[in-house]
């Protein structure tokens, strides 16, 4: 089991790597770290403590901390959506904290509720059928994407919001279409 100290150290290391700071309010920070730990315990991955996760990694990949939206949020608002990572200005109190609007697209937000819809439909059905439908609900078609700016390659359902390597925007990603040809 991951300890709270490990969660803190991981976040601190990531903040150092990207030139960010962790939230300067000790109580607020403690709540965030505990939330991350709790999510890691119940979902097996540390999804954002301030967003409702589906519990299915394929649907929650973009909100696993540090989330896809952190860098643009820190850039625009001085901190990420949950407030874990902040810019130097916010950390040093030079800039006032402003509310960070949700940048995650609504079609991704509602994914956390889709298993519920599947549950409603199959109430009268057998356990085996239920499992199959739930699996279907969580199925996401993954593709290979590459960043046209730096060449970073990722295998997931949708291209990242921002390139984690060179910070290029989503529009810079293109799908890699794999074609297998048989000859002879």
């Amino acid at each position: 089991m991951t300890t709270l100290e490990e969660v803190r150290q991981r976040a601190e290391a990531d903040a150092r790597t990207y030139g960010y700071h962790l939230n300067p309010d000790p109580e607020f920070l403690q709540n965030l770290l505990e939330g991350l730990k709790q999510n890691e315990e119940r979902y097996s991955y540390p999804s954002c403590p301030c967003r409702l996760a589906s519990g299915k990694i394929e649907l929650d990949r973009d909100i696993i901390c540090p989330c896809d939206y952190r860098d643009p949020d820190v850039e625009d608002f001085g901190m990420c959506y949950c407030g874990l990572y902040t810019s130097s200005d916010i950390y040093e109190g030079k800039t006032k904290v402003r509310p960070v609007p949700e940048r995650r697209p609504i079609e991704k937000q509602v994914r956390a509720y889709e298993p519920a819809k599947a549950t409603q439909k199959k109430e009268a059905k057998t356990k085996i059928e239920v499992k199959t439908k739930e699996e279907e609900a969580s199925e996401v078609k993954k593709k290979l994407w590459y960043c046209r700016q730096c060449g970073y390659v990722v295998f997931r359902d949708d291209s990242p919001y921002i390139c984690p390597i060179c910070k290029a925007k989503k529009e810079m990603f293109a799908e890699i279409k794999v074609r297998i040809e048989f000859s002879g």
Binding site: L52, E102, Q109, V110, A112, A116, K117, Q120
Partner: peptide
Amino acid sequence: PKEKEKIREHIMSKGGSPVY
């Protein structure tokens, strides 16, 4: 899951997004 879905519908029916 059923309750979550009801809450989502309720918040969105009031013109909001399902954020907390």
